[in-house]
Design a protein around this nucleic acid. Sequence first.
DNA 1: GTGAAAGCGCTAACAG
DNA 2: CTGTTAGCGCTTTCAC
Lengths: 347, 347
Amino acid sequence: MLRTNKQITLNDIATRLNVSKVTVSKALRDHPDISEKRTKEIKAAASELGYIPNFAARNLSSKKTRTIGVVVPAIANSFFANFIESIYDCAFENNYDIILAVSQENSQKELKQLETMLSMRVDGIIISVAELSENKEILKRIKKSEIPLVFFDRSVEYLKFSSVILANQTGAFSAIEKAIEKGYRKIGHIAGWQNSNIGRDRFLGYKEALQKHKITSNKDWVVFSGFGKKDGYNSFKEMYKKNNLPEILFAVTFPVALGILEAAKEVGVKIPSDLDLICFGDSELNEYLKPKISCVTHDTSDFAKQTFKLIMKQIESKEQFIDEHVEIETKMLMNETCIKKQFKISH
Amino acid sequence: MLRTNKQITLNDIATRLNVSKVTVSKALRDHPDISEKRTKEIKAAASELGYIPNFAARNLSSKKTRTIGVVVPAIANSFFANFIESIYDCAFENNYDIILAVSQENSQKELKQLETMLSMRVDGIIISVAELSENKEILKRIKKSEIPLVFFDRSVEYLKFSSVILANQTGAFSAIEKAIEKGYRKIGHIAGWQNSNIGRDRFLGYKEALQKHKITSNKDWVVFSGFGKKDGYNSFKEMYKKNNLPEILFAVTFPVALGILEAAKEVGVKIPSDLDLICFGDSELNEYLKPKISCVTHDTSDFAKQTFKLIMKQIESKEQFIDEHVEIETKMLMNETCIKKQFKISH
DNA sequence: GTGAAAGCGCTAACAG
DNA sequence: CTGTTAGCGCTTTCAC
């Protein structure tokens, strides 16, 4: 048997009930124009016929989609996964749909995904850009086409979109201060790309803390790369080769810290006894790590809520631009790394 | 400044070039009707004007969306996260878009999400149903409306949709046999809901193995619940109260095993020395666990590819129903649990 | 090769 | 309260 592909339309309901299709359309949307009785009749008929509204038609004529596009660099990642779940919750509560795209840290995919979202005429876009993203052009087009967009976590600052980001610099700063407090003086950083706000600001926080406490760093102790586990792995190997490890490393993200752990294990460097470790960002996985990494944490659910709030504000506003910046506070969580140096030596 | 909301249409390009909008439409889609030269001109003009195709209009008139809806119970879960990433890859390669929805194991949300997908007129649906899903009605409607649908992992069998599932029974069977081989005789099961194929078939495999080896179970050693970490946690606590633990537990999913680990730790039961543990399913997280859980694994990327292949086949076919069932093979991965009993006793 | 006509299913604006 | 009219932007069909 072949597929038939007939769909029930407003007209089918209308002719059956001897009313106009406008009446049906209104009734189905609970428009106050229509009497309660009629509305009930119409809804009953619609459900009986198995009517399914056609969003394409609705969107085309109403010019609204009640849809928000979300672009993230990865999904198999505690932070983004949790962020997304929260965003879905927000959307559900507000009767919005989410179009999710995963760029996989790939600038080209990101571009295509953004284009798709524009073609879908999403009401707004929430994005955390891929590392080394080169999509200025399309972002400018989005700016021009006046579609609301909010950056979260990883932003592109000079384009004057709103953003919700972490307190990257102060978070990094206090993490390093904590290490100094514990007695560390040789402090290294597996840093992120410096054209990304999170890479740059966390590096700035690191430098700031060292400066304040008049501690000198060393070229060998800082390596720059991306934000994933592999980056951490490779960077550590690179640093290790120089045969001049610091006492403690500050990883730019949690996945990077994971990579460091793995690489260190491979070459026989024991953490935290031979080399200690802290990082920016947390993960459910940390619970199972041995040692549990001391890290800079934040409230991801709140992060998502704030981001959603901001995009909604922008969607509902008639203003062309809202250029608002929210910073989510961080907190240093002390676990089993970043231990007292004095204590270590006494062993 | 207020938002203006003007969009460039085919007509704008057409009038500028003094051709008809049909020509433009065709050129933009590389239709062989149009000469190469014209096509080039038109594409140039389109990009210059910043033309963005309107999918709603396109879908409405063409009745195709090149979009596939994917519904999963959770996203902050290694298996689903990896599955989704692979599905996105497949879609990308085939020039399809993905609409992702997360039911959060909630039947009502699942319902709403499926309705949304129908309204979006997705070309096909890939779904792993929520535990205790009660959405027979809408599935029947989907069947009736002839939209291709493929279940993956968790299916609803009696509705005759295609499915791609794991070798649940044989996978469970060989896991239990492995435990028996190692010397275990008191074998418990933190099982899943029995109205779900994965809960039921894994339980069947468990029973089958015991029967084959003439090993008796005990009521106290089997508890039924859901597939998440909390379920494992609660189930273990429940079993523990009965004061009659088996020697080894078989967890229906990896998250359930995680919950067991946590609960066991809380009450002071040491794994694997006091109580051993195996489970169905793996996770990246296992790498960091101590002990690493011995588990039934599979190739998630292949799983996703097979699922995508099946939905594509269905979309491209003119047949009303394809009722095809693929089973993904599993493999027992021996880690640091499910250790030899003899060895344990000799300690 | 190109284009005119018709319509996809819906909603906004207005008229009764 | 209900209905008429006029599109939304695009593709399909078919004539030229």
